[in-house]
Nucleic acid binder design. Structure first.
Lengths: 403, 403
DNA sequence: GCTCCTGTCTGTTAACTTTCCAGACGATTT
DNA sequence: AAATCGTCTGGAAAGTTAACAGACAGGAGC
């Protein structure tokens, strides 16, 4: 720790004011006073200083009460812009926002099946930027959420990415080069977790895990309010976890050495369903069918829950989190029924009584999470604000809407 | 974030000075200036202020160079005292230290087999305090390291504690009552991890896991330099982890559903050894014998390493830590050979190439870890210093030794 | 071997700067 | 008339730069 002169106080107070303005939208001077705890003259001086530095701007007047109309202030959004991108095998979904968090424009485009993905991606970003009146190289930061995880050593997508055409090269490096803007690539489940922490089920919780049972099982781990990425970007990559098959129905699996991913693959789940007399073309459909069917369906769901819970048990044994969130197509299809079955099975496997809930997936969690992630990077760079999401964030400010 | 007046500067600077003095032992004013970055008059004023508040004391003079002898300053150790205790089924090992980290006295006593453990414990603490010229109720904080983990809900020891006589009541509560001092009870493996982070193999690493393969498998998880305890104190309690038995030799285990602890129990390891033609009365002895034996011994060690690595793989899949440390009797007995076999097996199970090393267990890691833990609590209370061990700690100051 | 000078370091004092606070005052709006 | 906004004035708290007196080691000179 180092000591500081009065100059340090300035920095602390400026940052406090900027953070308050970002969080709580346009504010009058007196509101800002109360939020950051400075006196009237100090706050006024601070605002004029930040205004001449172009950091804050006047944003209308607040009337209504007695006395003269108060000046409203907000952070100058045009200081910097960011892009948040949800990249899937089928589509790319782009949002351009300014540093205040206001979304300027959105753009969605299909991705080609195999060749030319990079070109399609870059042109979609270019189009989105154009709609916002920007060039891609004016973006302060770009966050791309996609399946898989980037290996920090060589930048390649690892952990069995389901993104055809994106393998075998330094993905963030190539994007950075093509867009002439800083790019970071983040696992999609991690971004969902970020979003759940910011505006979903995990706002009151500091340690939680999002589990994504699917053809490619993923998980995101949040410890102490900070997303855990892992030494090689592989935290939460539990697809390869070796777990025993504890399903009651015999589906001929090698009971001594299945991976979590194998046990929850489409094929394996459909096989399990057939053993219970159910048939459908994929896991999601099977689960829906089982919910509609009677006792046989329930038995299948119990077996499925046992498989899921056995993997979740490993996570709970290692981390003992405050909360487990289930997300993804299968969990959504299974709804509260499957969720509760997993919770019940989990209780029999581990000592902690960790609550299991369905993730609150509304809207576009991956893109939203990417937006928050990019904003955190940009705000750290521009304002020196700490990027760790500690205090609850009250959601982005909508452009031009005074509160 | 809140803003601050000049008074906040005082607090920041005082804390910086106290931290520098705690870390780097007795310092002259000019050394302190350089460390915290204040000017000469400000530092001098700060020291006289802290001296009149009894927070720092003069600690001899530094001669040798030109000019007058410089005054040495250090934190007033007598401000508060703490106790660090290593509690095992057989013995209790107590150290009393002051807030500067100087150990005033040590005391070790045997524990009774079944009855009267509480009384024996309290009397041992009383004796240790007496040697230091204190009463137990003068202790600002007491940290007890022991096997198992305390359930925060009711204070009872959980996770199959191997501490006879300590079950079925609110352990920290009862100790607090008997000693009339604040007590916290911490898992012993957690304290070993803390010690490895402060002065062992993990000083350069922020995310690591200590694995303790034994009759009761434990693990300690450190994320971002902070020990993870878990929502119900159960983080790292991987004894109950469901893993398949991947040993080649058939020992008649239920391949579909063993727990990690069952596969590494004394009985199970001896059975595995017998399948390889080795016999001894406990796991530690078997491992030693296998090291001495030839190829058959090696085959057994490979099988043992497969069991250990399968459990470790679950941890790596969830956390992707920078480092895995093996500790405890079995790992010690197996030495580098077993360590390397585990590392090799682990590579076949997971994507990350997590290094596996033997813990650097010298001296008394549990008691030492308890000491650091108690000091962190005391320093937070007395000086308002943040308790998270972020910056590397350079070891406690030995009583009365000027540097 | 002794004395004295010099350079360097310690610790203190004084004057100045930066930052914030308390309170007063005029202007504005209901 | 009452409340509120924005600004102004004087002062308090904290730190910085600069200068000074005193202490001590080392070397020069005898």
């Amino acid at each position: 720790m180092r000591a500081g002169s009065p100059r340090l106080l300035r920095e602390i107070n400026d940052r406090a004011a900027i953070e308050a303005l970002l969080r709580n939208g346009p504010l009058t001077r007196s509101e800002l006073e109360r939020l950051i705890g400075l006196s009237k003259p100090a706050t006024a001086q601070l605002l004029t200083r930040l205004e001449t530095a172009d950091t804050v701007v006047r944003n209308g007047l607040r009337g209504g009460g007695r006395g003269p109309r108060a000046q409203l202030w907000s952070v100058n959004g045009t200081l910097a812009h960011i892009a948040a991108i949800d990249l899937t095998p089928e589509t790319v979904d782009i949002a351009i926002a300014d540093i205040s968090g206001a979304v300027l424009t959105e753009h969605k485009a299909p991705m080609p099946v195999k060749h030319g993905v990079l070109e399609a991606f870059v042109s979609a970003v270019g189009k989105a930027c154009g709609q916002a009146g920007l060039q891609p190289d004016q973006l302060l930061h770009v966050v791309v959420g996609c399946p898989g995880a980037v290996n920090p050593a060589n930048g390649e997508l690892a952990y069995a990415p389901h993104l055809p055409g994106w393998n075998g090269f330094d993905m963030p490096g190539r994007l950075r080069e093509q867009l002439a803007a800083p790019v970071s690539v983040e696992n999609d489940v991690n971004l969902v977790a970020l979003e759940e922490m910011v505006a979903g089920r995990a706002t009151e919780v500091r340690d939680f895990v999002v589990i994504w049972p699917a053809d490619l099982v993923g998980a995101a781990v949040v410890i102490n309010g900070v997303l855990l990425r892992g030494a090689s970007g592989g935290a939460g990559e539990i697809d390869g976890l070796m777990i025993p098959d504890r399903a009651c129905a015999d589906t001929d699996t090698d009971r001594s050495g299945g991976t979590f991913g194998e046990l929850l693959s489409n094929a394996s789940i459909c096989k399990l369903a057939r053993a219970h007399g159910l048939a459908a073309r994929n896991a999601q459909a099977v689960v829906r069918k089982a919910l509609a069917a009677g006792p046989a369906g329930r038995e299948f769901l119990v077996d499925l829950a046992r498989r899921i819970a056995t993997g979740v048990a490993s996570v709970v044994a290692v981390l003992d989190p405050e909360l487990i969130l289930l997300s993804g197509d299968i969990a959504q299809a299974g709804g509260a029924t499957l969720n509760d079955l997993v919770a019940a099975e989990l209780r029999q496997l581990v000592v902690p009584r960790t609550p299991v809930q369905l993730a609150l997936v509304t809207g576009k969690p991956v893109r939203s999470g990417a937006l928050h992630s990019a904003l955190a990077v940009a705000r750290e760079q521009v304002f020196g604000l700490p990027a760790a999401t500690t205090a609850p964030f009250r959601g982005p400010v909508v452009a031009g809407s005074p509160r």
